[in-house]
């Protein structure tokens, strides 16, 4: 019987990382709010996944399994922070009569979005990833580079060794498929 489960010998980290890292990154960034920490946690997640690849039963999808590992990494991260609590000293430089200034600074902080917005964005992000997964590998990569990373046409063409008209055909198909996929819930 052919065993279709991945083992350490047939695992291709190139594909693995390309397939899942953006998804994991978005999952992490809403939870830890720090790019560097997010990158570390994802790197650790892949390593942990690699080490325990033989225990992966294939009951869940590869990604669900990686998310389960990542969740534990995130919890560990917060545990570590908490254990450092009390050692850190937090200084707040506002006196009582400058409360107004404080409020103004608070509301002008672009990073504080309202919670509903964030949850909404988060769900939308998942919907987008689910639709991206339905595209062909190369098509998805090119589309992401163009649409999320805002890379220019020329550099993408160079990297994939394709002509601009090839690129636009790929983008056209991807946009059509993505629109159709997202239409039901998000249009």
């Amino acid at each position: 019987m052919k065993n279709s489960l991945p083992s350490i010998n047939d695992l291709n980290p190139n594909l693995w990382v390309d397939k899942h890292s953006d998804y994991l990154f978005n999952y992490t960034i809403v939870r830890v709010n720090d790019t560097e920490i997010a990158k570390d946690l994802i790197s650790e997640t892949f390593l942990a996944g690699l080490k325990s690849i033989n225990s992966f039963k294939g009951k869940a999808s590869e990604r669900t399994w990686l998310i389960a590992i990542l969740k534990r990494k995130i919890i560990d991260h917060y545990r570590k922070i908490n254990s450092k609590k009390g050692k850190a000293e937090v200084r707040i430089n506002y006196s009582e009569d400058s409360e107004i200034d404080w409020l103004e600074e608070k509301v002008s902080d672009p990073y504080i979005k309202n919670a509903e917005d964030r949850i909404q964005n988060h769900e939308l992000g998942f919907a987008i990833f689910n639709c991206l997964d339905k595209l062909k590998e190369k098509q998805a990569r090119i589309f992401k580079m163009k649409t999320i990373d805002n890379m220019d046409t020329e550099s993408i063409c160079k990297e994939f060794n394709i002509s601009p008209s090839n690129l636009w055909v790929i983008i056209h198909r991807a946009r059509k498929d993505m629109a159709a996929c997202l239409k039901e819930n998000w249009f």
């Binding site: 890292s21 978005n26 990158k39 994802i42 390593l47 964005n121 939308l124 987008i128 999320i148």
Partner: peptide, 24 residues
């Protein structure tokens, strides 16, 4: 618009490369 609203982020290529190297 949907992509704009989602505010999705991707990891940079060099970050991905670092992870791939560690895995290899």
């Amino acid at each position: 618009e949907v992509f704009k609203e989602s505010d999705l982020k991707t990891m940079t290529r060099s970050d991905k490369l670092k992870i791939k190297k560690r895995l290899y």
